[in-house]
Amino acid sequence: MSVKQKEKPILEVKDLVAEFTTAAGRLRILDGIDFSLFPAEILALVGETGCGKSVTAKSIMNLLAEQVCKRRGKVMMDGVNLLDLSKKQMRSYLGRRISMIFQNPIASINPVFTLGEQIRRLVRIHMAGEITRVKSELGCTTAAAIDRLAAANLEKVGLTDVDQLMRAYAHQISGGMAQRYRIATAVLGNPDVLIADEATSALDVTVQAHILRLLKRLSAEKNTAIIFITHDLGIAAQLCQQVAVMYSGRIVEVAPTAELFKNPLHPYTRGLLKAVPQLSRKTGLEHIPGTIPDLRNPPSGCRFHPRCRQAMERCRRLRPPLVETKSHQVCCHLYDAGNKEAAWAKS
């Protein structure tokens, strides 16, 4: 599976299920998510819009209203199942052990307070120890210490003119600056895990590159694992060591980046890769026929089977099991060792 197999994962998600109660009925948005995240690893969570990537992130962090979304399964962090924690208990984890940045950075900043006010509040919440240290070192007031720490954190993400920036408001800065700011606020508590939900999708390509570089650097420096949610395979390839492909509420394949691109196992992954335009290819773009399933009436068995060229009889009946090969983790009947049909259907 992963090169760092010897280490213990910092976050282990097992059979995470999320059911939403809506006017249209109970929708099983997440149908058993399985993956592991190792310290300082950058994992890409890739999938089409609507497959449940954001819901996965928000489920892990308990950001969804309890009346609307019921979660089941295991999200293990240091031996604690995060799903068992109440919202109040979870709060001590948020920002400190696990953190998140979002797609629209400017909308993620409170428009009526200055940037400085907001980051100072977070410094006060998460950096208590640091504040005391700076106070004793420099012999200054608490407020001054907080100011220094806030400024230092902003500089660490590559922002300049920090004093002016702290007096500014969200609508006065650019998207790139806003995302850097948001990253600064997210990592100042030194979290073990950072989830980036489509963090670069709303930015220009050049700015994207900067942010990706920043994330890579921070991950190495602070030993922070990152789950990078995106629909862009290219970015996944650039930034991440492992890629997890998601389809309609399940993670269908996990593999190291190079391995996934070279040897995709799941039919959906193969379809995705074939749909990416490449200059070297002479043939036209292929697309995966059909559309993503309507979750009010999801397909039986494997949710991908209606669109799968290699679908077998049992794909319609049984939910595919999690299969681990030496390099991959894949959810498909094709690779199920106990499946006699698989032997000759594998291609």
Binding site: L63, G95, S99, M100, N110, G189
Partner: peptide
């Protein structure tokens, strides 16, 4: 319901 409320919540700000 705004984004910045969810972002602040995700950063550990109290309810």
């Amino acid at each position: 319901q705004a984004d910045y409320i969810m972002a602040a919540r995700a950063s550990g700000v109290g309810e």
